[in-house]
């Protein structure tokens, strides 16, 4: 299995939102909808405060509950990878996947089917990084194969502790955040 993963260094992220804009441009995301978004978390007590920015999107889980929930197989894994895609021609818009996703990554399009982040698999096929990663001005985002120990993402996760969101759901997400 080819495991694509994203590793995001929250210490370098400045919360500019360029990843969001790049995604909307690249994927022609309809107005009012987003495939990725930036979360800002402030912690600590004044005056010792700390702000963390997190660029969030679909986690392309190994055990994707959305793929499991889909009654028509419209939600599926791309080939033998962990990348979760939606086939718009098979989607009935039942929204079972929206209920199943622990990350709020999915939305319903004006055409009535469900859509979400694709890890820009059309770019990955050509050997390019996803649009959000390619755009990031502080280069805090990294994309690559976790099953290749020489890849940048594998190296980063070896060097520093990467955390995933909601690991307790058992979804085995593949977007890591370096603290």
């Amino acid at each position: 299995m080819t495991r694509y993963a994203m590793v995001i260094d929250t210490r370098l992220c400045i919360g500019c939102g360029d990843c969001v804009v790049a995604c909307k441009n690249e994927n022609r995301v309809p107005a009012g909808l987003n495939r990725d978004w930036v979360v800002e978390r402030t912690s600590g007590a004044w005056p010792r405060l700390e702000t963390e920015f997190r660029s969030e999107r679909c986690n392309h889980c190994d055990h994707a509950t959305c793929v499991q929930a889909c009654p028509t197989g419209a939600s599926h894994h791309w080939g033998d990878t962990n990348v979760v895609l939606v086939n718009p021609d098979q989607c009935t818009g039942c929204k079972a996947c929206i209920a199943a996703c622990p990350y709020d990554a999915r939305y319903i399009t004006p055409e009535g089917y469900i859509d979400k982040c694709t890890f820009c698999h059309h770019r990955v096929e050509q050997g390019l990084d996803p649009a959000c990663v390619a755009t990031c001005p502080t280069r805090c985002m990294h994309f690559g194969r976790l099953d290749d120990p020489r890849s940048r993402v594998a190296q980063l996760l070896r060097e520093r502790n990467g955390e995933t969101l909601k690991p307790e759901t058992g979804n085995l997400p593949n977007v890591y955040y370096l603290k």
Partner: peptide, 17 residues
């Protein structure tokens, strides 16, 4: 359903059930 016209995908054997 957002796309009731595609409900036939939920029919076993005919659609991708």
């Amino acid at each position: 359903l957002g796309r009731p016209d595609r409900i036939w995908h939920m029919i076993p054997y005919i659609g991708n059930f």
